[in-house]
Amino acid sequence: MIFSKLAAPLAAILAVATAQRPATPQSTEVIDGIKFIKSGPRVLLPKDEYELKFARDALNRLKTRLGPDGLLDLLQPDIQEADAFWHDIIDKSSSSLYVSADGRVIGFFPNMTALDFAAWSQSPLADKANNAANPEHYFKRTEEVSPGVLRAEILEGWGGVTTHFTVPDYTTPPDKEKHGMLRELPEFPIQAAGSKVLADGTDAVFGVLHISVRDVPGEEHGEEQDGIEVYASVWYGDAIDDDHLEAERQHIVVEIINMSMQAQKDIENGDFKPPTAQ
């Protein structure tokens, strides 16, 4: 009798609650062969897209809290492994044969030219943006040693090899007598290059970095907005394997996209005054 008296009010409450609950969209995703039906978020995305954002937030927080010196201490075992790795590549490579990991990206930005990006990339804002440029980036500290020449200290994972190194001679334009392996690339009016030197006290040169930037007419790609192209190459001795180079190619593409997007944001919000606006 009690249950029968409660049944009607309870049914009414449940009906009202059901009517008030907003319908949520669903999406289906297969992960490692297992099917999942998801609902809840207002914006439904693949699981990895959610996780990537969370990973970026967590990594940036850890990198910021630890700081450059804390990261050097924490990652010292990995750095020592990297030193051994690169010395082995140097020892096994021919003295005159080099191979490169290359990445090229064209982006169409409303407020940025090739000259603007090149100037931003050599400003303190580029060092500040380094943590978010790639999950394998830890820190970059840059100083000008003479007009047109920068020195950078970097802790970065290249192809999974966590390397502490300097670029003591990042020069605009490149010193192509010193770095004879560099491509000429006459279509790129803005170029810079420098040696990658291990910071283990040996002064061993294990690679050469070459970055080139140019403006690209939008109509060449069916776009109304003109774009910029960034072409980055890292040259190594020929003992390096292609699996490592492929990991670096992927790294380079991620880095170019993230850094150029940050440069655009810094121009938009007024943190960086581009040369073309002066």
Rank of each mutant, 00 (worst) to 15 (best):
S146R: 14
P147Q: 06
P147G: 11
P147W: 03
G148V: 09
G148K: 13
G148P: 11
V149W: 04
V149A: 03
L150S: 10
L150K: 03
L150P: 00
R151N: 12
A152M: 14
A152Y: 02
A152R: 10
I154G: 03
I154K: 00
I154E: 05
I154D: 02
I154V: 15
L155F: 05
L155R: 07
L155H: 01
L155N: 02
E156S: 08
E156W: 02
E156R: 02
E156L: 05
G157H: 03
G157T: 08
W158D: 01
W158Y: 12
W158M: 11
G159R: 00
G159K: 00
G160H: 01
V161E: 00
V161I: 15
V161K: 04
V161G: 02
T163V: 07
T163G: 01
T163F: 02
T163Q: 07
T163P: 06
H164L: 11
H164N: 12
F165S: 02
F165W: 11
F165Q: 06
F165M: 08
V167E: 07
D169A: 10
D169M: 07
Y170T: 06
Y170E: 10
Y170C: 01
T171L: 08
T171F: 10
T171W: 01
T172I: 12
T172A: 13
T172V: 13
T172N: 12
T172M: 12
P173A: 15
P173G: 14
P173C: 13
P173W: 13
P174C: 13
P174R: 03
P174A: 13
P174E: 09
P174S: 07
D175A: 12
D175P: 06
D175N: 15
D175Q: 08
D175G: 11
K176F: 09
K176H: 08
E177P: 00
E177L: 10
E177H: 09
E177Q: 13
K178Y: 04
K178A: 15
K178F: 09
H179L: 15
H179N: 15
H179D: 12
H179C: 10
G180K: 14
G180I: 09
G180Y: 09
M181K: 06
L182C: 13
L182G: 11
R183I: 05
R183M: 09
R183S: 02
R183G: 01
E184I: 14
E184L: 06
E184D: 15
L185V: 11
L185Q: 09
P186H: 13
P186E: 14
P186L: 14
P186Y: 13
E187R: 09
E187D: 15
E187L: 13
F188A: 03
F188R: 04
F188L: 06
P189Q: 06
P189H: 04
P189D: 05
P189N: 10
P189F: 05
I190V: 15
Q191I: 07
Q191N: 08
Q191C: 07
Q191L: 08
A192C: 12
A192S: 13
A192D: 06
A192F: 02
A192E: 01
A193K: 04
A193L: 08
G194L: 05
G194A: 12
K196E: 12
V197M: 12
V197H: 06
V197Y: 05
V197E: 05
V197G: 03
L198E: 03
L198F: 11
A199W: 02
D200M: 04
D200F: 03
D200W: 01
D200H: 01
G201D: 04
G201F: 05
T202P: 06
T202K: 03
